[in-house]
Design a protein around this nucleic acid. Sequence first.
DNA 1: CTCTTTGCAAAGAGTTTGCAGGGTG
DNA 2: CACCCTGCAAACTCTTTGCAAAGAG
Lengths: 136, 136
Amino acid sequence: MEARKYSKKRAAILEALRSTDEHPSAEMLYARLKSEFPDLSLGTVYRNLAMFIADGDATSVGTVAGQERYDADTTPHAHFICACCGRVLDVCSPNLSGMDGEVEREVGGVVTSRSLSFTGKCADCLSHDSGKGKAS
Amino acid sequence: MEARKYSKKRAAILEALRSTDEHPSAEMLYARLKSEFPDLSLGTVYRNLAMFIADGDATSVGTVAGQERYDADTTPHAHFICACCGRVLDVCSPNLSGMDGEVEREVGGVVTSRSLSFTGKCADCLSHDSGKGKAS
DNA sequence: CTCTTTGCAAAGAGTTTGCAGGGTG
DNA sequence: CACCCTGCAAACTCTTTGCAAAGAG
């Protein structure tokens, strides 16, 4: 389809995505790489993230607080999303691909990916809450 | 917290959301109600959807093709999202709330909601593909 | 009469895109 | 030297917000 040439920036973006577990957004990656590549452009980050997803080197965790979050870990696992601070954590989950067949039968289509996520309040936000004690 | 007064438009928006199974976006609801309420404003739709979610009368299915999709069915169920046409279908799924405890133990936080979705290609898009037959 | 809701339009925020120049094979 | 990749900035799209007028209790 599209020939893909090597690019130092692309390699760095993918490496940055792989070496973190915070499921960064495009801006988070941009901020992290800006010091190493002062001339990096946000558009380049977006363009490369799209390539990673097209190539199966990354997936989207979904939109959290208006920003799309990415994950280089493409093995089946679920996520915990803190509605308070926007943090995204990995949590283990049973393999869902076993349900594909049933879903496909139900909708008459084909399933290519699944996503399981839990939303709530993370440990940090819970402890900060106790200080604000305005309950009741 | 916030006193809530009756509003004809709000009632209509909620009714429109409840009487469809296509998990509409704000614009879809707006388009559907525009004929009945020519002076309806998109901002009002957004404002009311936010209220429904705050009140637990609706939930967000997530962002599909850049648009947030809503669901008035708050009972536990999964979704199938067609990556091709953006359609969102209901599919049944085992009750996931039983996993809350394990997740909370894992992250040290509290879980308030779960979301399971399958992405792929729906029956309609599959059949349209066969016409373009470029496989092989 | 008081407080909530709405229309309108402008403002915001995140993401995409066109183009000219630089990098890779 | 042909084609991919990038920076820059403008363009887009979806969503939020401020304000004065209208509606509900």
